[in-house]
């Protein structure tokens, strides 16, 4: 998802007998749906995995601004421009909520930035694809934010308090993102023939990268099992992907657009007992692994933009700290008050 292939620390799930008394008490609290708060005892692996997951999620929100900001100056109307600006600003806010949540685990903001800028930390593969037309902005809102919501709604119940609370805030705002995207697509799909073709082209290019957002199948992964036992991962990647396809295909039909998958078909008994779902083609996982490890169409451009912004802002950050120190020196009385 926004956090893809987060490596879970630890050696897999321990049985109750294998756990230390502290670990057992911790797991019992999680099983009882109690929230873990910053200063409470937690297994080192839980802390490490959460830092990795939350920071990756935060990085995705921040890098995710870049493909959209490309269209701020090119938006077709002033209203669309204002809406897009608001959405991009929300993404910055989401990144900040999440960085704060990660900081409560004992990692500094600068350290997380360093991990992102040096390429040691990942961010979602989806943001390494280019946004070539205005319809791409619609598709990103509709599919990318739609997929994000699918993952984030259950994470509101995640076991780590600050992460769950950040997710509540994010989910409240995310629905606007998806709806504004779908609204763009409605206008394009029902517009001129050229606009309709643009909308179809955007769907063609973003469909499989959107499916990749959920990550490869983790049904048999011991790491995922540990993260699920800790309730920092709530659903399987395949489960979320299925849900996303089932929700999105009717929306594409409403738009009169064609999902680029010959094998797509409703299977009324896919999960037995009358529970249906769409059969669909898997994305190209080789492409996914290339993109997530730095070799996608826009990886260098995205990281380059981040590093440039960070380095060119250094004088500003330092200058304001120097100014704050000077002001504090001048007004010792006020500081003490």
């Amino acid at each position: 998802m926004y956090a893809q292939m987060v490596k879970t620390d630890g050696t897999g799930i321990k049985s109750s007998e294998q756990m230390t008394p502290e670990e057992r008490a911790f797991q019992e609290r999680i099983d009882a749906d109690s929230r873990i708060e910053p200063k409470e005892w937690m297994p080192a692996g839980y802390r490490k995995t959460l830092i990795r997951q939350i920071s990756q999620h935060a990085h995705s929100e921040i890098v995710g601004q870049l493909p959209e900001s490309n269209w701020v100056t090119r938006a077709p109307t002033l209203e669309r421009k204002a809406i897009l600006l608001a959405k991009v600003q929300d993404e910055a806010g989401h990144g900040l909520y999440l960085y704060c949540a990660a900081e409560t685990l004992g990692i500094s903001r600068d350290e997380m930035f360093e991990q992102l800028h040096s390429g040691r930390a990942k961010y979602s593969s989806i943001f390494n694809y280019p946004t070539l037309s205005w319809a791409d902005i619609g598709t990103v809102g509709w599919l990318v934010d739609g997929a994000a919501i699918m993952n984030q709604v259950p994470l509101q119940r995640t076991s780590y308090g600050p992460y769950a609370r950040a997710m509540v805030r994010i989910c409240k705002e995310e629905s606007f993102h998806q709806r504004q995207g779908f609204h763009i697509m409605m206008q394009m799909a029902k517009g001129t023939e050229a606009q309709r073709r643009m909308a179809q082209d955007a769907l063609d290019r973003f469909w499989y990268p959107a499916l990749m957002m959920f990550g490869p199948s983790d049904a048999d992964s011991v790491h995922s099992a540990q993260s699920m036992a800790w309730k920092i991962k709530i659903d399987t990647n395949d489960g979320l992907r299925q849900k996303f396809v089932d929700q999105t295909v009717p929306q594409a039909e409403y738009l009169g657009l064609t999902v680029p998958d010959d094998k797509l078909a409703w299977n009324a008994d896919k999960f037995g007992e009358g529970k249906g779902g769409y059969d669909f083609s898997e994305p190209d996982w080789d492409e996914f692994f290339a993109v997530i490890s730095g070799d996608g169409p826009c990886n260098a451009e995205r990281l380059g933009a981040r590093v440039k912004a960070w380095e060119e802002g250094a004088w500003y950050r330092e200058g304001l700290m120097a100014n704050a120190a000077k002001q504090a020196d001048r007004q010792p009385a006020q500081a003490a008050a």
Partner: peptide
């Protein structure tokens, strides 16, 4: 404080303090 102690490995790499 409200949070666990933040280690400061960032200080080794970046000489400037965080806001």
């Amino acid at each position: 404080s409200a949070y666990p102690d933040t280690k400061e490995p960032a200080a080794e790499r970046t000489p400037r303090p965080e806001w």
